[in-house]
Nucleic acid binder design. Structure first.
Length: 536
RNA sequence: GCCCCUGUAGUUCAAUGGAUAGAACACCGGCCUUCUAAGCCGGAUAUCUAGGUUCGAUUCCUAGCAGGGGUACCA
């Protein structure tokens, strides 16, 4: 509906310009948006405010002219009032009928409501978590994981093809360190319960070989600590596990990538090492590919990995990384460009998760083994609560997680508030089964209460919310949307008695609205990966 | 030094450059003989500082202050 109004306004402007002979005007960026308060209508535009400064007219005069034109164009059964307010806003008020009909539309589409094809042309590689296989997943991994998972769901409902990918760094120095750690020799680095467990299970045939132990331990950790936690505890589906060692190196992607860089004369020798001229592509300095000792850097593997991605045919790469990797963005972009990638790359940097206990930050260190793992947290407060909590905040902010508070509040947090809507709606359905409702007499024009109309407006917005998220990648908007949906429902529920055996037509109409709300909320929760319950 | 993120209510967080800055928790006061009170309704409290751009700034720009992260021939 925003696009529609925008079009009308543009047409009106053209006519005003012609009639008044105001000369040329450039295509101005004006917005049609939802007003901050209900009294300002359903939609509003700032077109007059923006344009007036360029024309010999006051913004109120211009608004009036636009309004006159619009009133000719727009049908009155859709919009009942166009209003001009103070500095020059033009507010649009839709008719009740317009909104009432939306209930039918939503229920006809059922669980497909919200689906679209707007991103049909995107083939997305969505890489997230990608934690080193040297220990269990921590809270930061959880944050990126949930974010990536929901982002993927949003894209899928909007028509994109998405591959969720986890890159396993199983080839580098850290695997040797892991070997030492499991052996508990002098060069041990990692500590913690999982290391102790592995130490007791070292296979006898590799007993003193830290290299082999490292490889073995990485496999064990991946198999027992990472994959099951992602799948069963976090409820995240990874489509593609890419091993640095077995895919990128053994299958030659790394070598091919280096070869191409050399062919393009983008590498050079200096101080006995081979460098990539990443500074030519916006990086702050060049990067080493092959070290003086002949071994290849982690970045060399990354070049191979980028080359691998390009060759899968993706036209959109998404990299969800922790804040400690942000310095990597430029060189990643540089190598993608150097290797000829034409598509879009988006980086999502998730700021750190801090654990707070008794008002103070708990310093965590993987090496010291005093880390709270995502699995521990899920076991303590429940999967849905962790997921929702992490998804409520913008990834740009540091997330303070108060463990105690999370546990105390698990009985009165937003997840339950939202699920309570489904519980209420389910129990209404149960009661309504006992009443005889004749479907063909459905009369939605009976939905006239402010709370009813407000609720319809809110549930009808889901497709637009999904569209916005697919563009700006701000997943936390969806949790906020779910909360506000629950707000509107509970508020409606309190004021509008749904079942009234003396007034069957109204009961029917209101029940239809309850079902529509349930539909939209279920869809929202499905995308968020939160359980949909029937009873509380 | 340089780069990135953040600074909003007592606390944790919202707010595509727009109208009276929203929630939640905590605090105060109402609402259950009627569909689940895990709910609803009402109240008090906030944009780090100084400039700038704009009809209009929490949002953009500059400088400062404060917190976090990064700055390897580590991964």
């Amino acid at each position: 509906m925003r696009q529609e109004i925008k079009k009308y306004i543009q047409e009106s402007l053209q006519e005003i310009i012609q009639k008044e002979n105001l000369g040329k005007f450039s295509a101005l960026e004006f917005q049609v948006f939802y007003p901050p308060q209900e009294k300002f209508g359903d939609l509003t535009t700032n077109v007059a405010l923006i344009l007036a400064s360029k024309l010999p007219l006051s913004s109120l005069d211009l608004a009036q002219k636009i309004k006159n034109e619009l009133e000719v164009k727009i049908k009155s059964e859709k919009i009942k009032k166009i209003e001009i307010v103070k500095p020059g806003y033009i507010n649009f008020f839709y008719t009740q009928k317009y909104w009432q009909e939306k209930v039918t539309i939503i229920n006809k589409q059922g669980e497909k409501f919200g689906d679209s094809k707007i991103n049909y042309d995107k083939f997305i590689n969505n890489e997230f978590i990608s934690a080193n296989p040297t220990g269990p997943l921590h809270l930061g991994n959880g944050r990126g994981g949930y974010w990536g998972d929901v982002l993927s769901n949003v894209w899928k409902t909007t028509g994109a093809q998405v591959v969720n990918e986890y890159y396993i760094n199983d080839a580098g120095e850290q695997i040797l360190k892991l070997g030492h750690s499991v052996l508990k020799d002098k060069e041990a680095v990692y500590q913690g319960g999982y290391i102790d467990k592995l130490n007791k299970k070292i296979p006898s045939n590799i007993k003193n070989d830290y290299q082999k132990i490292g490889k073995w331990a990485a496999q064990e950790i991946l198999k027992k600590e990472i994959k099951p936690v992602i799948k069963d505890k976090m409820n995240i589906n990874i489509d593609s596990w890419i091993s640095e060692k077995n895919e990128i190196i053994k299958n030659g992607w790394r070598e091919k990538a280096l070869q191409i860089l050399r062919e393009k004369k983008l590498t050079y020798q200096q101080d006995g090492a081979e460098w990539f001229q990443s500074s030519q592509f916006g990086d702050e300095k060049d990067r080493v590919l092959i070290k003086k000792d002949g071994s290849k850097t982690y970045f060399a593997s990354d070049c191979g990995y980028v080359f691998y991605k390009i060759n899968q045919g993706y036209n959109y790469l998404v990299e969800i990384w922790g804040a400690d990797h942000h310095g990597y963005i430029q060189r990643f972009q540089a190598v993608a460009k150097a290797l000829g990638f034409q598509g879009k790359i988006k980086f999502i940097i998730t700021q750190l998760v801090r654990l707070i206990e008794n008002g103070e930050e708990v310093k965590m260190s993987k090496r010291k083994g005093n880390v709270i793992y995502i699995e521990d947290l899920i076991n303590k407060v429940g999967s849905d609560v962790v997921r929702f909590f992490f998804l409520m905040r913008s990834v740009n902010t540091h997330l303070d997680f108060d463990l105690k508070l999370a546990q105390e509040k698990s009985n009165q947090n937003p997840v339950y508030y939202i699920q309570y809507v489904l519980a209420r709606s389910h129990s209404i359905s149960e009661k309504i089964k006992k009443i005889n409702l004749e479907k063909d007499e459905l009369d939605l024009s009976l939905l006239q209460h402010d709370k009813e109309i407000a609720l319809i407006k809110q549930i009808y917005r889901l497709p637009e919310v999904l569209k916005e998220i697919s563009e700006n990648l701000e997943v936390h908007r969806l949790t906020h949307y779910a909360i506000s949906l629950a707000d509107y429902f509970h508020s409606f529920y309190e004021v509008c008695k749904i079942i009234d055996e003396k007034n069957i037509p109204l009961t029917q109409a209101r029940y239809e609205l309850v079902l529509a709300t349930e539909n939209v909320l279920k869809k929202t929760l499905k995308i968020l990966g939160i359980k949909r319950i029937k009873k509380m």
